[in-house]
Design a protein around this nucleic acid. Structure first.
Lengths: 141, 141
DNA sequence: ATATGTGCAAACGTTTTGCAACTTC
DNA sequence: GAAGTTGCAAAACGTTTGCACATAT
């Protein structure tokens, strides 16, 4: 894993704000940050102003594979990424039906969580839950 | 909602077998079933032999909107559909990491379900859980 | 020096759409 | 006959890939 400006910019974004980001959001932010020459203060005018979207995809694939970031999927056909929680803490999200903003939630107690969300003012609550596993038939092969 | 042969074929497939189906699977099955002229026994040789994929998408969109079918998303970039459970029973799925087969699961008690899945021989268990709601900020608008 | 990362452009697979012809009611 | 549905072809969308060039170690 080499240290490059694009990769640093991705990490910087993910570390600075939370909530998962789409590839496109990351791309726009990283391009902007590279444009400003923020990456290497020693080099005021960077050779490359922006970053290719394909590069962002490749960076996220690598990071994902390396366990640095985790991928989320809210069922809208767009992948989202966030820094793998430092403490390795497993978590989920509430996604707003109106503005689409996602907020992290700790723990897996469904009833309890729905109740606290309701108390916080969240309405029209629903959830999606999927289990992934190796099924008995495939384990037997 | 008009009654057409393609729509009948979609319903027939979804009603005959369970587990959610991809659009492609539905398309292939419906085309085959229309080919055989099974739809209208009174007309042995149907005018149209197959069904367009775009039509399947449109049918599923309509049905989904009407609440006849529900859409699932396993994060592999393909939408899946199944008949909205007759009794309106809310349920989830276990998706095999190896063969990809999905089986329905009743209820939402995460711990309990993981345990029973383990007892059934499912291994390498993980889950994805997302909440959807209208957030307080959007409710205030 | 070598392995690795990048930009660009083209391809991919799923899903959506415009339009004219055709069914269903 | 009017409203709704379909086929076809083309486009949109997020994502992936091949290749030559550039970069980090």
């Amino acid at each position: 894993l080499k240290r490059t400006r694009a990769r640093e910019a991705v990490i910087r974004l993910l570390a600075s704000r939370h909530g998962p980001f789409t590839t496109d959001e990351i791309h726009r932010d990283v391009s902007k940050s590279l444009e400003k020459g923020k990456v290497t203060p020693s080099a005021p005018i960077p050779a490359r102003e922006t970053c290719d979207l394909a590069t962002i995809y490749r960076i996220l694939a690598k990071f994902s594979e390396a366990g640095v970031v985790t991928r989320s999927d809210f069922g809208d056909g767009v992948a989202r990424f966030e820094l793998a929680h430092e403490e390795g803490r497993h978590h989920h999200h509430v996604i707003c039906l109106v503005c689409g903003k996602a907020e992290p939630i700790r723990g897996c107690d469904l009833r309890l969580q729905e109740e606290s969300l309701r108390k916080l003012g969240f309405t029209r609550l629903s959830h999606r839950l999927e289990f992934f596993a190796r099924c008995p038939a495939c384990a037997a092969k």
